[in-house]
Design a protein around this nucleic acid. Structure first.
Lengths: 363, 363
DNA sequence: AACTTTATCGTGTGCGCACACACAATTTTT
DNA sequence: AAAAATTGTGTGTGCGCACACGATAAAGTT
């Protein structure tokens, strides 16, 4: 099955390996007769290129740009980079090189500077994480004009662009549904809920809205007559403020059974509920951050929906590899699996995180 | 960082590439002076071999034996093979070849025949799935004597063998704990449970026992005063028999809230409960088989703990690769993640299965 | 002194591919 | 008709590595 080389093709088609190569890569300069002969042989022997040899021959000929917001501190973006590097390690010997481009999330014109640098560096493909605004349009136009294929991560911006390959990201709607289901299963008597959006930047609100509508849709589908209180909290670092809000919700809603925190700030809520001795409330939040792991161990009934951010970067790189080197057709949308983490199965997920960290440290 | 080759090492140590190669592979025939010089250079430049080039140079020099029971029909074993093939596809160009060896689970002496074939074929490494009995001991001795490294999957047989690399498999105890937790969360009023072991072959009972003790341990830890009925059903294909058992359990235990089926036969239980109009009972079972997917969609409250059998084979192959080609130290035990699948997040897991099937079809 | 043996080390080749270059055959231009 | 441009093909090289083979020098043997 395997082991067919261009030599085999050449000898079957009675041409040289050079001609086979020209046909394979559409380099032109081949007569119609030779071309058809080669193509027949390719089909007959079911030729697939040896990627190992190709990678060796190519040697640093695929430059990939990674375009991310400049959030050095943020664990979420750190994990993206970990995943990207993990995939990169697997494919770097195949002739790939990556280059990071970080833009300032808040500073206008920051993306313009990136575009200038991209022009100089002549990249072949890109992984892009931008929000849907005026600036990003420029970037996509640039990529289009320069025939740079790209994968979007994090935010999916609809755009009829022939160079757009895939969106890799989380299914916010489904994760909201899942959260509602978990609360419904875990809350026995009190079936009223609250949704807390804890996020300082409004830019991420599309995600949060999708989570919210997923949550509400589930309750409707199940025909549950639950009351749902919805709050948006922008002052995420101020503990007192949060305590006040929580107290308010608890006192006004006597039948409250669960809280859905649509971001990764669930640990703050958990700590306050322990203070207030209201750990009867079931919690659902996102992301296996260090703080969330700690609270998950302590808090009686709590679920973390883990989006495994590192997988997002990992899949994005892997998709590029598949496209550039294997001519594989990619799914236009790739949703990450939604892992449900509790005290009981936490250890398995920690193992996987550990591995990621080890790998990224080595790079 | 990367891009250091043996040439660089050779020129820094002022020896030839041949000598560097001899040091790298402990081939001997190198003076102490040269060896230390080379080793210094290796450390200083932080050399890592280019696996792509190595794979090209090696060309079919790693023969790997896959030793599995002959269960062509069983979906579980099919998935193992899918995972193995998926990993194989990723590494086949690196000079690996695999060969399947299927033994008859029930037939005495079947493993002996395998050993004879292994002797002829001169394999370098193996992935082994055997139960702990007399026969398997012979196999392990053979592997040991012939310096064949091996990974165990499915069943972990303790053995002080220098050629044993890793066990890759499921954490049965934890999966039992997880099942108990799910039932505890999902059952609101009736906190009595039943455990059903539905399995014709007694050989797999060590797994089932571990699941059972994990289940019971959780209940103890939580100080729940639940009654737990335990039944072992060997006549798994006879629907009437099963109906009788279920009816018996239901009539005798009025406070029954959930059923834990320790195998993949949960679909049969679900169908009967629908017939009996007792879908108030919460179900927990294993494995995303086609039948289980169907019942999962229909049944009101049900969890599938998915062990992702294909991952088991996948990791096993990947471990061999890491060991043989990257000299990486392997974890002695690698547990698979326990995915919790419900109606709501089913779609994500189906995507992954789909991908696996596509890949395996191509091979 | 003329050998053989042994330890140590360098060189060369090929893995399969991409690509540059050389050269021949053919067509177009002068 | 000769010169120039174009097209079609074959050959050669290198990517980094593993490994066979041969070369060299030192040590041992007759």
């Amino acid at each position: 099955m395997a082991g067919i080389t261009i030599k085999d093709i050449a000898s079957m088609a009675k041409v040289s390996t050079g001609t086979v190569d020209r046909v394979l890569h559409n380099r032109g300069g081949v007569s119609i007769q030779s071309k058809t002969k080669v193509e027949k042989a390719l089909k007959k022997l079911n030729y697939t290129p040896n990627l190992v040899a190709r990678g060796l021959a190519l040697k640093d000929s695929y430059k990939i740009a990674i375009i991310l917001p400049k959030f050095d501190q943020d664990e979420y973006w750190k994990q993206q980079i970990i995943g990207i590097k993990r995939a990169y390690k697997e494919i770097q010997n195949f002739g790939f090189t990556i280059k990071m481009y970080n833009y300032d999330f808040l500073h206008q014109g920051s993306l313009d500077a990136i575009i200038k640098r991209l022009k100089r560096h002549k990249v072949h493909a890109a992984i892009v994480a931008v929000e849907s605004d005026q600036e990003s349009k420029k970037l996509f136009c640039f990529l289009e004009d320069n025939h740079v294929f790209y994968i979007q991560i994090n935010a999916h911006i609809e755009r009829a662009n022939p160079n757009f390959l895939s969106f890799v990201g989380q299914d916010s709607f489904q994760s909201g549904r899942l959260a509602a289901m978990l609360l419904n299963y875990a809350c026995h008597i009190n079936k009223d809920f609250a949704i807390l959006h804890m996020e300082e930047y409004l830019a991420t609100s599309p995600h949060l809205n999708k989570k919210q509508s997923g949550f509400l849709t589930y309750l409707e589908d199940q025909k549950l007559k639950s009351k749902v209180v919805i709050k948006h909290i922008q002052t995420v670092t101020q503990r007192d403020e949060l305590r006040k809000v929580l107290k308010g919700i608890l006192s006004k809603n006597k039948k409250l059974g669960g809280l859905f925190i649509s971001t990764s700030r669930v640990h703050a809520v958990g700590e306050i509920l322990i203070e207030l001795k209201r750990t009867d409330i079931v919690l659902v939040g996102f992301d296996l951050l260090t703080e969330n792991i700690e609270i998950l161990k302590k808090y009686p009934k709590m679920f973390i929906i883990n989006q495994n951010a590192s997988l997002q970067g990992f899949y994005a790189m892997q998709f590029l590899f598949k496209h550039l080197m294997q001519n594989q057709n990619l799914e236009k949308i790739k949703y990450l699996p939604l892992d449900i983490v509790t005290k009981e199965n936490l250890i398995n997920h920690l193992h996987m995180q550990q591995r990621d960290k080890l790998i990224s440290a080595k790079i």
